[in-house]
Design a binder for these strands. Structure first.
Lengths: 190, 190
DNA sequence: GAGGAAAGTCAACAAGTGTTGGCATATGCT
DNA sequence: AGCATATGCCAACACTTGTTGACTTTCCTC
């Protein structure tokens, strides 16, 4: 078999290591997710993990690679922007566990926290800037508080009333909040 | 010195251990906060920590002892309830680092997560029940998402736009959200 | 002051961590 | 075939962790 092909053997194990890493990091956090456990999940020797990714930190960096893939908010009217954004975020959260990895680890790992800042401030702020909003950074931050708080309570802390919400329920509750953070004039504090 | 007095020597070191533990747990999370580091902060031998608290888990349990001390919401009109609650929570957060300890650790430590559930669902829900609200658990959960998300972004992840908010700013922005979660009729999802 | 408990120190253990180098195996090319 | 390279496993390392037991010092009571 001539190996210009994409399907090399090593690529498969590389990928299975990454999958196992994501699961473990997401379930246990950075410190408690051990290389040995990840290797066991991938049915492989711990040394292989080092061979392929160099170190635990680099493996984590690979596992936490992420892009929010924001929808273009200029297409939707301001009053629906909140609901569109919430639905996008919740669905994104549900389909991809990378965000859960990031959330679990960002609390104790500075590199993960930095990436979180990049994603939620660094990607949201310019998007709002393009939509010609005032105070785009503050609005991005506020939306991050509600979105991350929801994810924290739903996926990490498992608050029953929040876990029990359907996607539609969540959108119906959170949508207006996000809309207000997007559209409300900056409150003047006396 | 007759030792019926309250000021025994051991009580002081006990307290200094607890203070150091709170700081370390709050700054580093459960796993990275080592007994040795806590002991060093308290200028004491690691063995003393075990002598006084038995184990790391018990020390953590002592350090995470906490009560929200909710204000009585029956006194305030519904329209201001959100602002009152937010102001109370933010101030509580600012004055006492126990909540930060809890937040940092709850993400990886199941015992801390359980306590978080007790505090935010177990204490908030019955308070709303007493105030004769419908769906008290869901409302408690939603308020928890916004409150915890705010704390996460402000104290743990250090999102600059959120760190920069004054207490009054925070109340002005979050107050209406909490009020809506308290008062809005349950959205009907088709 | 003598006796005894309380408070603190020291060194060590057993277990688990990330990480490394050497050695076997298999795989693909000529 | 035979060689070279990629892939994988094993055993060990250096280190840190929570935890323990024996020893010394300090302090209070008699």
């Amino acid at each position: 078999m001539l190996c210009g092909m994409a399907e090399k053997k090593s690529d498969r194990t590389r990928a299975s290591i990454l999958a196992a890493a994501r699961e473990r990091f997401g379930a246990d956090g950075y410190e408690r997710a051990t290389i040995r456990a990840i290797a066991a999940d991938a049915s492989i020797d711990p040394a292989m993990v080092m061979r392929y990714y160099g170190s635990k930190e680099k493996l984590f960096a690979a596992a936490a690679e992420f892009d929010v893939r924001l929808p273009d908010l200029r297409d939707v009217p301001r009053e629906q922007a909140g609901e569109v954004l919430v639905r996008h975020l919740v669905e994104r959260w549900e389909e991809d566990d990378t965000l859960r990895v990031l959330l679990r680890t960002a609390v104790t790992n500075e590199a993960a926290a930095e990436r979180m800042r990049q994603v939620f401030i660094g990607q949201l702020t310019p998007a709002f800037e393009r939509a010609a909003m005032d105070e785009p950074a503050v609005r991005a931050g506020l939306i991050a508080t509600q979105a991350l708080g929801f994810a924290l309570c739903r996926y990490i802390l498992a608050f029953e009333p929040i876990v029990g919400l359907s996607t539609d329920d969540a959108v119906a509750w959170l949508g207006p909040t996000i809309t207000r953070y997007l559209t409300s004039p900056v409150p003047s504090v006396p």
